[in-house]
Design a protein around this nucleic acid. Structure first.
Lengths: 420, 420
DNA sequence: GCGATTTATTTTAGGCTTTAAAGTATGTCG
DNA sequence: CGACATACTTTAAAGCCTAAAATAAATCGC
């Protein structure tokens, strides 16, 4: 059991490169070309010989593939600072990804603030931009109009043109079909089954990939965060709703039919509290913003509270100041969170759960009591209990995670094929 | 939503061949040799041309591979009854698996009765044997002594010798590490971390594979039952405990770390009913045999009930006869079952859930009320609600499922390599 | 400094798998 | 019977990868 509040800067410094560090054991089909590229990117720099050993392929293959990737402009030989004067034998020559071999854009669409970043092929941010959003629901067309200036601004700031962007990733809360880019439902949109992906593809002439916010945060962890060194882990987000993302074997698991993982709407109580989805007893109905403020209204004796986040802050301050009713609200939420996490452990048995989301500032939600409660509610016969970490990112997680979506796709299309 | 009570004979007649019908899209690494063999086995018979089209490989490859498999004795050309006088052109030559190219044994170890079957390479039962078990916990050594006669009997009945058995599959309830054959915990064994696999391997000189009973039933569905035509589905068993198995992309999903899928111990109630695992609020504590009999004791005014299954029968009879208290017990169990199933749907989004286990005879558990309750407790934005089927197999499911475990392994080791 | 040693990378020849395309076999249709 | 359709087989060649030999570039001991 551990807790870690890590800044983005720390996460960046923790390990070089980006992307999952552990190789993917299941899938032999990835071309060696892509495997070599991904190995170098994951480790920041890697020598040919190391790469050959790590991937269990012959040195000759690496030589050939590296030469090809260098010719194509994806890799380059660099001075290896780490290994200076180390050992005998011919010194290895380090390979590194050519940072500006391609670029991607990641966009997060939210109810309060949109954010977008433009990064190079190793995930370094070249430009970032945010814009406050009006809180109304809107149509896809309106949303495109709303977000288009952000993209233009990014390109301008980074000095790039549309044609230099290999892919765009978009995160939005709601139910998203990642394969088709269709948003089946979102609290931000007026339409159901909105063709968000194709709308942005038409706008930008780039391949566009869409996913829901929980998956986006999970990708952020897998590519840039604590999950890089793990091949299997879960991410649970507590915010407006309760979301979940799962990585199995270094890949984002999206459920058998592309949906699923709706942890927020798993039932934790028969005939329980009313959820905004209209059903009763959802985990979300005990944990999410609206659930807490609903109770806050009662506890603080206020009948109407203007803004959700304001009232939450008030509630938290009251709890800190010793208001028993306020504290009880957080305590109950924490107990239900522990129950929800215990169910995740029982069903998926991940080695690590990362708690994410702005609400993680409310330390009641990740107090030691809550964490030990999870273990009390779990069977772990092998004595390898699930590690639980808290990770409060800055506001750019979502946009950063969206770039991971784009980076994956761009890598596939550019590096995965032999003649780009 | 559909219900189907299908006998083993019907399941057998429903589709020819055995094993998953849908090809595995994820894994390119399977050698074409194995893919061809598995395609033929899955379809009962298949022409070379059909196989080439189905697997998207060239006809020439199939010719070569089929020739090799025929030489090695795994495939043969047969008269194709179906296609007589169909179309123009040279008639296809059907290929079929040579049934006695190898044999496997499947064993189910239970608290009441052990069962074992010996099948050929297409899953046809050549011999079956059952033996009542004493209900005491026992050591691995005692268990081996107990089961050894069944194996001897099978071999004798089928006229085979130990050396003709390619693999043995064993199912046992409890927590099993399939990779190592270690039973971490089982209600049938006195020891923890019992090396059941190696114990039987030592006895029989065969490769032995062990899995828990829920996975075994799931394999039975995947190989011989309703799951054959699905690439993703879940199986939920209600019996002494509540178990679950999940098939993702035609493969049994065993959780990130080989454990997991402990649906019975997911929590459905804070501070709920006491479970035999010592925790409170487990789904199992509302559904399993001991949970029902515990309440039956109260409802029927009986203080001590001799045998669990006897008292369950009494309770069921009372409910049928109109005893309100008895009926209420089943009703509540059904409500909790629907809640548990809804959670499975929310998290895994399988297209199909198969309810299995002897308790499915208690129709309260799969009444339309329960099924519609599941859908009421689930979000399904794409209007593709999860299908729920009930499947009451005969007593040999478990043993049959265990053969699937053995068949998988035997196919890998025998067919997967070019020179056996 | 010099050769032995060590490790990294490159070159080369060959093996394996698979395919496309041409060739052969065997049926139906008119 | 010939035209056609479909299934299967053969064959040459392409691709990918490896093992092994060759080459490169460093350190170590003297």
């Amino acid at each position: 059991m551990s807790k870690a509040l890590m800044s983005e800067a720390q996460a960046k410094a923790a390990a070089p490169g980006c992307g999952p560090i552990l190789p993917d054991h299941n899938d032999q089909s990835r071309s060696l070309r892509k495997q070599v590229f991904e190995h170098v990117r994951a480790h920041g720099t890697a020598a040919r010989a190391d790469t050959a050993r790590a991937l269990s392929i012959s040195a000759g293959s690496v030589t050939g593939i590296a030469a090809e990737l260098i010719t194509d402009g994806f890799l380059q030989e660099v001075e290896d600072v780490a290994r200076q004067g180390a050992s005998r034998g011919r010194p290895p020559v380090a390979l590194a990804v050519v940072a500006d071999s391609f670029h991607v854009i990641g966009i997060n669409i939210s109810d309060r603030v949109h954010s977008a970043v433009l990064t190079d092929s190793v995930g370094c941010i070249l430009a970032e931009v945010t814009a406050t959003a009006d809180q109304q629901r809107r149509s896809v067309a309106e949303l495109v109009t709303e977000v288009a200036p952000l993209i233009a601004q990014l390109l301008d700031d980074a000095g790039k043109t549309e044609s230099e962007i290999a892919a765009i990733g978009i995160g939005i809360s709601g139910m998203v079909d990642n394969n088709t880019g269709v948003v089946k439902w979102s609290p931000l949109l007026t339409e159901a089954n909105a063709e968000l992906g194709s709308a942005f593809a038409a706008l930008t002439n780039c391949p566009v990939f869409v996913d829901n916010d929980a998956n986006i945060v999970t990708l952020a962890e897998l590519w840039f965060g604590d999950g890089r060194a793990k091949s299997d882990f879960a991410v649970v987000t507590v915010e407006h709703g309760v979301g979940m993302g799962l990585v199995l074997n270094n890949r984002l698991f999206r459920g058998a039919r592309g949906m699923g993982l709706e942890l927020g709407h798993t039932k934790v109580q028969l005939d329980g509290a009313l959820c905004r989805c209209g059903q009763r007893g959802c985990l979300e109905a005990y944990l999410a913003d609206y659930a807490l403020t609903r109770e806050a209204a009662t506890a603080l004796g206020v009948t109407t509270l203007q803004r959700t986040n304001v009232s939450l802050e008030v509630l938290f301050a009251e709890a800190k100041a010793g208001n028993r009713a306020a504290k009880a609200i957080f305590d109950r939420a924490a107990r239900y969170l522990s129950l929800g996490l215990a169910n995740v452990v029982q069903l998926f048995d991940p080695g690590l759960i990362i708690l994410s989301g702005e609400r993680m500032r409310y330390d009641y939600l990740y107090a030691d009591d809550m964490l030990s409660e999870v273990h009390k509610l779990t069977l772990h016969p092998g004595d390898n209990p699930c590690e639980i970490a808290t990770h409060a990112w800055g506001g750019l997680v979502w946009a950063k995670g969206a770039t991971a979506l784009a980076l994956t796709a761009a890598t596939d299309s550019l590096v995965g094929v032999s003649t780009p």
